[in-house]
Design a protein around this nucleic acid. Structure first.
Length: 475
RNA sequence: GGUCCCGUCGUCUAGGGGUCUAGGACGCCGGCCUCUCAAGCCGGUAACGCCAGUUCAAAUCUGGUCGGGACUGCCA
């Protein structure tokens, strides 16, 4: 039997990292088992669902490299499908469940509602748990599931093991709202049945909903899928990762200059490992080794610093042309304009030494800025620390003079020329080069100096040495 | 409050009765290298929540306890 898995994002926001991680695990298992991976758009909340969010979520999934199988689910864009297209089906099931006695119309007299409200208060439960909010319109015909009280609801979770709920702890939950729209529980369960989903891997926050889904599935006369409840992702405060934490949507990671392969790798490591030793691995290796039953039970704290380290690993491992292509948008953003074709050549030239020093793509923009724009102002701390030292004017003068007449303008030639000069001046290499760095790049932190000068060009380099010199007192 | 889930270095994890004086990775600290910054290399720091029980032997099994989390909506 081929496995069939799905991810069901709701288009009420951008793709959340928690959802992305769940998508990743579903995708890994589907690919590992040569199964099917479906994307379903859970847009039963009409108020908050938007087309833009839907498009963004699909784009994020593609960015992460999670491809879904088109042609299995249809009706939505790009081989996905939307629950909003299946309203009739959900209503039909709800009616059938009422007919079979598995569900009932909620229609309680006012005094009974009041006593329920008081009971809810006493038990510390949300009042709406028993009664609809008065402000809700058209509430006459809500349909609730009736929970069979004869036996505990038990299931074997691939990750948790055997989980059991007593029926009296499961409330009669609404499956069809008063306005005729399905709730999440109904829509999701009906779809899992209709699309013959074999494995439901989702966040542990849905563990308490699982008995509801099982009751529903059985009432439809079907057997439930295999469940695998993934450990939650926590923010650094130890709470479930939610919108209140910063950077919870996948697009922020793309925008901050993270590589999809790195994010994929990092997310896969949250709750799972290849062998306990391997840290860096690609999609194929993950697909090869992945088992849902190997997923950890413990919640995982999202650690941005490890992700950043990993991103650096991936950036350094890329072919340089790929790095240039990935970094270009961030260079453009840094400059606020496009690069000319001449400037593109300069970027290609400097790229290797910048690539080594880049952890997040925007850093590449900062590093190469000095190549494409005049130095409007020097970094204040660098100037203070380096340029106010004694002997700096003489160093800059001598360097400018020497480089002005240098014939072979290459990093190697510049290096030997300047090293020889500093030896003549009896100035240490470290001490002597820093003023030049500040003069040429505007900061005491920059790509390697000789490469920087070589790419910048002879006349510009000499000009910048002289410009900085003019700002210093005459000796 | 009730129900359910979870507890190995600060963080992600390996481990599932002896090979564990607990391994790997990030971070942090120190050193080397070095034109700055990175990278790289070397070294260090640091954990089985606690208490019982089973056993010749427990991080591993059992019970309890403490702690954390999720859910408790006509949101998903």
């Amino acid at each position: 039997m081929t496995t069939r898995l799905r991810i069901a994002p709701s288009p009420t926001g951008n793709l959340h990292v928690g959802t992305a991680r769940a998508a990743l695990f579903n995708w890994l298992y589907a690919r590992h088992t040569d199964g099917v991976f479906i994307v379903r758009i859970d847009d039963t909340d009409h108020e908050r669902s938007t087309q833009d969010y839907e498009d963004g979520i699909l784009e994020s999934l593609r960015w992460l490299g999670l491809d879904w199988d088109e042609g299995v689910a249809v009706g939505g864009p790009h081989g996905t499908y939307r629950q909003s297209d299946r309203s009739d089906r959900y209503r039909e099931v709800a009616i059938q469940l009422v007919a079979s006695g598995a569900a009932y119309y909620e229609n309680r007299p006012p005094d009974e509602l009041e006593s329920l409200r008081q009971q809810a208060q006493k038990e510390g439960k949300h009042p709406g748990h028993y009664i609809r909010k008065p402000s809700d319109p058209a509430s006459e015909g809500a349909i609730r599931m009736s929970i069979p009280q004869n036996a505990p609801i038990v299931f074997d979770d691939l990750i948790r093991g055997t989980v059991s709920f007593e029926p009296e702890d499961v409330d009669d939950f609404v499956i069809l709202r008063g306005n005729g729209t399905p709730t999440y529980h109904l829509a999701s369960t009906v779809d899992d049945v209709d699309y013959e989903i074999t494995h439901v891997a989702r966040g542990e926050d849905l563990l308490p909903s699982t008995p509801k889904h099982i009751v529903l599935t059985r009432a439809m006369g079907m057997g439930e899928p295999t469940y695998a409840h993934l450990p939650l992702l926590f923010g650094t405060d130890g709470k479930k990762l939610s919108k209140r934490h910063d950077a919870t949507s996948l697009t922020t990671y793309r925008d901050r200059g993270f590589m999809p392969d790195a994010v994929f790798n990092y997310l896969a490591l949250l709750g799972w490992s290849v062998d306990g030793e391997t840290t860096i691995f690609g999609r194929d290796a993950a697909v090869e080794a992945f088992e849902l039953s190997d997923v950890s039970k413990n919640p995982a704290t999202f650690d941005p610093s490890k992700l950043e380290w990993m991103n650096g690993e991936y950036i350094r491992a890329m072919p340089t042309p790929d790095f240039v292509a990935a970094a270009l948008p961030f260079v453009v953003a840094e400059l606020g304009r496009d690069l000319t074709s001449e400037e593109m050549m300069l970027l290609d030239e400097i790229a290797p030494v910048v690539q080594e020093r880049t952890k997040l793509l925007p850093e590449a923009g900062e590093q190469v800025r000095f190549l494409f724009t005049d130095i409007e102002e020097y970094d204040a701390a660098s100037w203070e620390k380096v340029m106010t030292k004694e002997g700096v004017p003489a160093i800059l003068d001598a360097a400018g003079e020497r480089l002005l007449t240098l014939e072979d303008w290459t990093p190697e030639s510049i290096e030997s020329s300047l090293r020889a000069l500093l030896e003549e001046l009896e100035v240490g290499v470290g001490k002597g080069l820093q003023p030049m760095r500040v003069a040429v790049t505007g900061s005491s932190i920059s790509p390697p100096l000789f490469e920087s000068m070589a790419v910048l060009g002879q006349s510009t380099t000499v000009d910048r040495l002289s410009n900085a010199r003019k700002l210093l007192p005459q000796t």
